[in-house]
Design a protein around this nucleic acid. Structure first.
Lengths: 239, 239
DNA sequence: AAAATAGTGTCTTTGAGACAGTATGAC
DNA sequence: GTCATACTGTCTCAAAGACACTATTTT
């Protein structure tokens, strides 16, 4: 039997550039932070020396899929392998990259505070409080992407368990509440908060944890590390 | 002054194929329907004669942006110019298109029932009830995209004004409620429904409309045609 | 008048926030 | 013991669902 290899027409269309960018969030010192990288200064590079979101071209030989590409970029910059990673959206037009018509697939990731704070000391990579990062003039349309990411995160935090992915396990309910408050920028009622978290049953007790002062607290970890839990209601935000 | 034209390095990376697909919803005969198109049978075309979502390659010469490209494809297939159009997500990997590594940007659109029902008679284009469409074997990964779109629509209908974009204006509250019920697949309480719609204040009275039988009803139109309204709560879905 | 549909009023239930109270650990 | 923090109980209030009622138009 002759193995018949089907030949498909290649298109006449000029192909746009395709990139993947990742907005990586963490909480450091009670602040929501985002990772920025400095663009190279070499000749022929757009936006030389400008701060940007980590990202770059899809490598059709190495990346099996867009998600794999995003995971690779995250791993390269932070060493984190299995974070919370969600697609944010895509942006594409003729002007956003001076090299030509380009489209980028943006993801956002949540990771616990990285142990090696080296990253924040490097000259090509920096953890920046996200409000401050949003005020810098970033490369490409990364200001738009970053704003969208912050907005999406803040909005989802109102009714999902997303902040749990910003903490190293095990964590206590008071710690988790503090992260919610940091991201939302307002205090929450302790009793209502605890009821919500426990009713949702997405946490697993994992033994008492003793803090610096005061009474010991129950430690928890996520039952499912690969998806967020959606609560039936939103936190009442002064409706 | 010599006009210095900056030359940017073109990348060594092989460029993936870039397409845009649009999931176009409408309500016909009390059913949520989606528009499918038949792929050409010509040689060298992938998935010949298979049903697919409307879409195709980004044309870097004609399309200023991804959104403009999606609008063009919608206009070409339906003649509708200013519908509700929202980004759904993107899918990209090495295998989804036999012609090579490809990524697609998917949008979903909501339009009022098209007057020309010609479209549903054509051999290359068909309005299909969406549950039925989801059961067909579509081209590429369009089953995944369609499922995601249906899921997203159903989920957003629980807490947004999206169904209003599926009706021609002016519409009455009972008509709007029927669309909600069609999309959600369950009945809603009339009183609670009306309270929600009117409290959200996203509708504008536009005069009485008389139906076939019974009492005349107030006609409404959207105050803002370019964005959906988000309600403070979700419709209680048998929590 | 009867039928059909539009629109309103009221009761009940639910669940979240407020806030004060109790428990348990470190010193 | 005191202090600091973890955790719980109870009251109140608001919003949504249930459902019965009234209103207006067509036949």
């Amino acid at each position: 039997m002759s193995s018949s290899r089907v030949v498909f027409k290649t298109t006449a269309f000029e192909r746009p550039l395709v990139t993947v960018d990742v907005v990586i969030f963490t909480v450091m010192a009670e602040q929501l932070c985002v990772l920025l990288v400095r663009r190279p200064e070499s000749d022929g590079e757009p936006y030389p020396a400008r701060w940007a979101l980590p990202g770059g071209f899809v490598d059709v030989d190495r990346d099996a899929s867009l998600l794999a590409c995003a995971e690779r970029k995250l791993r390269d910059k932070t060493g984190v392998a299995a974070p919370y990673l969600e697609q944010l959206g895509s942006w594409g037009d003729a002007k956003r990259d001076p090299r030509g018509w380009s489209s980028t697939h943006a993801y956002f990731a949540l990771i616990p505070q990285p142990e090696a704070v080296d990253a924040s000391a490097t000259t090509t990579t920096e953890w920046v409080p996200c409000d401050q990062a949003a005020r810098r003039r970033l490369a490409f349309d990364h200001n738009t992407i970053l704003s969208t990411a912050i907005e999406r995160l803040r909005s989802k935090v109102e009714y999902t368990s997303l902040p749990a992915f910003l903490l190293p396990e095990p964590f206590t309910l008071p710690q988790l509440q503090r992260v919610y408050e940091v991201v939302l920028g307002r205090p929450l009622d302790k009793s209502a908060f605890r009821k919500r978290m426990l009713d949702a049953a997405y946490l697993e007790e994992v033994g008492m944890v003793t803090g610096d002062h005061g009474r010991a607290a129950m430690g928890y970890r996520l039952r499912e590390r690969d998806q967020a839990t959606v609560f039936p209601r939103t936190f009442k935000s002064g409706e």
